[in-house]
Structure formats: structure tokens, C-alpha cells
């Protein structure tokens, strides 16, 4: 578990309402916040919980849970596409002479995709560096107390690197589509090219969303006053980015070896 700032066990008046916007960003002495919790044990209040079971950490876990479910739905989307891929690849028809015809001609995969894959993997590394930077304990402490913004600065740089690499990946995909279309392998050309485009474009749309999230995270790093908000946004963006990387590896393997 990465470090998030949680107020120490000092006086914790119970507040009726959950107040966000004051989660220890270095301006007020830490107080307890009412946060959602998993009521596993009978009769214990949040105040009696061990540290790390309340406050910003719960916000982080909540965001991650949401992201997990959303990615699960996304996975189903791609599972559907891949199932259709295999069904279509296996189907054919009988022509006028009663011959069985299968129209599937594998689409040659432009070799630049290998390069793109490498770039995307690299971008995941830089993203992870950014994410870890957000949770570097001593710096988080400093930032929380208001001694500058060491974590946000460092994470920001690595997020920029990620953004650049991500843009390079998308540019690389663009080149690949261009190369294919010079060979007249358009979307409509053949069942296999249907899938090449549908899969790569769907994935590219997801990466665009990822880039939008990166930009949002960068803006937040600059302007949000709440440490936890910055951490949550960077963390969510990076996990999303990783998921898209892993997804791409499967999709690429399918296109490269599955046809």
C-alpha cells in the first residue's frame, strides 16, 4: 500500500457530515473526517479503526474500486469484439458451384506496431514512476505540511513523459493505418481488416481518454489544493494507463499471431 496521509490518532470530534476539501493539504491541523467504511466488525466506529483505514486512503480505495468495475466492463467490450473475431474467422459460405469459400485473408500487420508496443510499454514505466512519486512518503509529508510540492513536481514531469510517449504511440498507430491503406487494406477490404481497424481504433479511443485523463491529472497537480485529490487522480489515471497497456499486448498478440 502506498503512503497516503492519514491524520494521527489525536482528538477526533465526531462530525455529522462528511467534509471534503480539508483532507490535510497543509493548511489546517488534521481532524477526522467521516469516510465510508466497510463495516466488517460489530460496533466499531471509524475513530476506533487502525490508522490507514480511514481518511484519504479510503478515498483512494474508493476511486480504485470504481475504476476496477469500469475496467471490468471495458474488458467485456473487448471480449465481445474478440469473440466476434474468432467466429468470423471461422465462417464461410457455399458459392454457386457448391464450393466452400472462406473469405478471410490475414491482414499483414505493419512492423511499426512492434515499435509502438515498445513505446507503450515504456510509457507505462514512466507512468508508474509518476504514480510512485505521488506516494513517496517523505515528500508526501513535506507537501502535506506545505513545504513546497516535491511530489507533484516530480510526478508532473513523469506524467509529461507518459503523455509524450502515449502521443507517440497514437502517432505510430496513425502511421500503421496509413501504411495499410496505401496497400488498399481499408476497413471494408476483408473480414480480417475489419477487425484490424475496429480493434486498433477502439483501443486508440481508449488511449485518447487516457491522454485526456493525463491532462486532467496534470492540471490537477498544478491547481488542486488537496493532496488527496492529486494523489487519487494520478493513481487512477496511471492504473487506467496500465490496463490499456496490458490490453494492447493481448490485442496485438491476437492480431499478430491470431489471424
Amino acid at each position: 500500500m502506498p503512503s497516503t496521509i492519514t491524520p494521527p490518532d489525536i482528538d477526533r470530534p465526531r462530525r455529522p457530515d462528511f467534509i471534503e476539501g480539508d483532507n490535510g493539504s497543509g493548511r489546517k491541523p488534521p481532524t477526522d473526517k467521516r469516510t465510508g467504511g466497510n463495516g466488517d466488525n460489530d460496533g466499531d466506529g471509524w475513530s476506533n479503526r487502525p490508522q490507514g483505514k480511514r481518511g484519504p486512503r479510503e478515498r483512494l480505495l474508493r476511486a480504485r474500486t470504481g475504476l476496477f468495475f469500469a475496467l471490468f466492463g471495458d474488458l467485456m467490450f473487448f471480449i465481445a469484439l474478440v469473440s466476434v473475431f474468432f467466429v468470423t474467422k471461422a465462417s464461410g459460405h457455399f458459392d454457386a458451384y457448391n464450393r466452400y469459400i472462406n473469405e478471410w485473408l490475414p491482414t499483414a500487420i505493419p512492423s511499426i506496431l512492434w515499435l509502438n508496443t515498445a513505446v507503450l510499454l515504456l510509457s507505462s514505466v514512466s507512468a508508474e514512476v509518476a504514480r510512485r512519486a505521488m506516494f513517496h512518503e517523505i515528500d508526501v509529508m513535506d507537501e502535506w505540511f506545505g513545504f513546497g510540492r516535491p511530489t507533484s513536481k516530480r510526478a508532473g514531469i513523469w506524467l509529461w513523459v507518459t503523455l509524450l510517449l502515449g502521443a507517440m504511440f497514437l502517432a505510430g498507430q496513425w502511421v500503421a493505418w496509413g501504411q495499410l491503406s496505401t496497400h488498399h487494406a481499408f476497413l471494408r477490404a476483408n473480414p480480417s481488416s475489419h477487425f484490424f481497424y475496429i480493434i486498433t481504433i477502439s483501443h486508440a479511443v481508449h488511449l485518447f481518454l487516457g491522454i485526456a485523463a493525463l491532462i486532467a491529472a496534470l492540471v490537477t497537480l498544478k491547481h488542486s489544493r488537496v493532496m488527496a485529490t492529486r494523489q487519487v487522480l494520478v493513481d487512477g489515471t496511471v492504473w487506467y494507463w496500465h490496463a490499456m497497456g496490458v490490453l494492447w499486448i493481448f490485442l496485438f498478440a491476437l492480431l499478430e499471431y491470431g489471424q
Partner: peptide, 27 residues
């Protein structure tokens, strides 16, 4: 979460069949 994602994929393919000349659902 499970079902609507699959429907979305199907709708996308149907859209391609209608407008982009693919043949996912067409003989």
C-alpha cells in the same frame, strides 16, 4: 456492467455494417 458493454460492442459493429461497408452481421 457485463451486459451493456457487450451491447455497446454489438452496436458499434452494427453501425460499421450500416455505414462503413463492413459485414459482421451480413451474409
Amino acid at each position: 456492467v457485463i451486459a451493456f458493454s457487450v451491447l455497446l460492442a454489438a452496436l458499434l459493429l452494427l453501425f460499421c455494417d450500416r455505414h462503413l461497408g463492413t459485414a459482421f452481421f451480413l451474409p
